[in-house]
Computed example of a mutant assay.
Amino acid sequence: MKKYLYHYVRNFDYPLFFTYIFLCLFGLVMIYSASMMVAMVYEDQDPDYFYKRQLLNLVVASVAFFVGAFIPYKHYSNKKLMVVMLSIMLILMFWVWNFGTGAEETGSQSWIDLGFMNFQPSEFAKLFIILYFAGAFYRKSLKNSIENLGPNNIIYPILVWLFIIFCVANETDLGAVMIISGIAIAVVAASGIQFKKFLKFFGVLAGFGSALIGFVLLIKGDEILTENRIGRIKAFLNPFEYEDGSSYQIINGYIAIGSGGLDGVGLGQSIQKLGYLPEPQTDFIMAIIAEELGILGVIIVLGGLGFIVFRALSVALKTKDPLARMIAAGIGSWIAVQSFINLGGLSGLIPLTGVTLPFISYGGTSILLLSFAMGVLINVSMYVKLEKKRS
């Protein structure tokens, strides 16, 4: 144990750690600034209501981070642990399917009310897909080289992925479906599988996934293709035609970004958060950052997120261990894809999906599981440093 701690402290990825801490604290400040009006007017609470809740979320998340950081990542290929993770995933999906909340407020039945917090199983699904896919492919590689894996060897991970996609699509959380699909593809691409087989695998995922989503649309089309979601597509195609309706949030986001200019109007001085921009502390928090802190604030956030993604992919490219490579690539792709979907919706590149910005937006489940994932990534990074020293 002493030897492990000695190597751990010496090889700890401090740049990655401090970037993660900085983004969390920066997000906490911006949540306080963005949510004051929402807390007082809509929640009938003190101005620092969301700030205190997110601070508590960060305290819990810090525990999750250190748990992820100190458990050797090799354990995630343990068959018993994989069965436990799968069992937890199945229980969560069954629970949210039958007793989930949120459909009336957001249009997605995606949350489980635990009393002290709302837990979102689709967030756990993102982490689960990374660890389960990485563990499953790694275990298969112990019997056959990953390059020679065929469809029969990976049928179970595909079935698990399809089941999760079906459950999340059934919640009508389309943003999470996109992220989970991107993560699965990234983990498989990092496994070392032959390119031709990867294309076949990608084709299988695309084919079965499209058929499954089509089936969900067939049986729940009225719940998924709601007036709100159709409005988001119309707003994406021509936002200024629907500025008093479905484009209201997008247009006010544009106004916030434009008002900020180069140096911003000043921390806490946003106009759009005063009832013009709905839920500014969640998926539109970057608009408030741009308005109050200008381009500098945007660059700070993008730089921090970009550094984490770059570090994760760098770790994946440096290691010779396929399990470490898949885990690092999966975590990096999670943050990259989710950031793109959030910022793409905000800027009008893609339709809005309601996805939060990693580490910055308000949300307990998101910061909890992202923090655990960052701990795992730092553990992998530590191993890669040791691996490099020994080679």
Rank of each mutant, 00 (worst) to 15 (best):
P47S: 12
P47M: 06
F50A: 01
K52Q: 15
K52T: 08
K52Y: 09
K52S: 15
R53V: 11
Q54S: 03
N57V: 03
L58W: 06
V60A: 14
V63P: 11
A64W: 04
A64G: 10
F65L: 02
F65P: 05
V67I: 15
V67Y: 13
P72L: 13
Y73T: 09
K74M: 11
K74L: 10
K74G: 09
K74C: 02
H75K: 12
Y76W: 01
Y76R: 10
S77N: 10
K79M: 13
M82G: 04
M82D: 05
V84G: 02
M85D: 02
M85H: 06
L86F: 15
S87R: 06
I88G: 07
M89D: 14
M89L: 09
L90G: 11
I91R: 10
M93Y: 08
F94L: 15
V96L: 05
W97I: 10
W97K: 13
N98A: 04
N98L: 09
N98C: 05
T101R: 04
T101W: 01
A103Y: 14
A103F: 14
E104L: 14
T106N: 14
S108Q: 09
Q109P: 10
W111R: 02
W111H: 02
W111C: 01
W111S: 00
I112F: 05
I112A: 06
I112P: 04
D113P: 02
D113A: 07
D113K: 13
D113C: 06
D113S: 03
D113L: 04
G115N: 04
F116V: 15
N118E: 12
N118D: 11
N118T: 08
Q120M: 08
Q120T: 03
S122M: 00
E123H: 00
E123V: 05
F124T: 03
A125G: 00
A125W: 01
K126D: 14
L127F: 15
I130A: 09
I130V: 14
L131R: 00
L131T: 02
Y132L: 03
F133D: 02
F133K: 01
F133W: 10
A134V: 00
A134R: 05
